[in-house]
Amino acid sequence: MKSETIMRWGIRFYIGIFFIYLFIPLIIMGAATFNNSRFPTITPWKGATLKWFDALAQDGAMWTALWTSLVVAMGVLLVAVPIGICCALFLSTVQGRGKTFLYSLMMSPLLTPGVIVGISTLIFWKSLSVSGGIMLTVIAQTTFIAAYVMLMVLARLQRFDRTLENAALSLGASQWQTFTRVLLPYLKPAIISACAIAFLQSFENYNTTLFVKGYDTTLTVYIASKVRTGLTPAVNALGLIMISVTVLIAILYEWKRRQEAKRTVSSVQ
């Protein structure tokens, strides 16, 4: 049993190192925001300042990019979520030949590098004389985000008890009523999660967006361009804000999920 103990401590040590590795970069980036230096770094420390937040607030291009990102994310949400739901409904309903093929096809955008999704969208729409911009960005991102939505909705659908639908039909509900009154409410939590994921995926996308953005710039693209040209700790300030917001959302989401889990557990007992 001694090797067991060593094993246990070894693995704990490893976990500790791992989480340091995971969080140190983010902490350093956040800390660099407050360094009174022209470049984003913490070495050497030149005293604390909040001026980079001001600099950020003054940055008009940043605000435009943020707005573009929000518009794109909303667009993606509106298009990708219905597509993903339809795919999940389809896959959970049909049986037989061709289903595995269709499933693979629907999964394929997730296994395709983002740059290629962007490039193929760009070329395809060029042949229809549409060039890059917000609309193309929405289309390109939808291509693979719809597949994420599909996976999330499908996971919940697979736990759905289809006799509930038969029960509704046997009580005289039409198929449409059965869908809206029984199936959709059941799917609601998965759809809400899928909306959140779709929004975030869109907001943070870079590789695909880069090819189809045209003259529009999303926030992620803007940050990347800032890192390569004209790098100042204002970028850190932006990063810090984005991290804080995501952390907040992540915690809220997790908290709500647990709340829900607790509720179902207690109601089963």
Partner: peptide
């Protein structure tokens, strides 16, 4: 939490 944060920012922190 880090997974929810942008790939660009995650990479940028390593740049620093």
């Amino acid at each position: 939490i880090p997974f929810w944060i942008n790939e660009i920012l995650r990479t940028f922190s390593w740049y620093i």
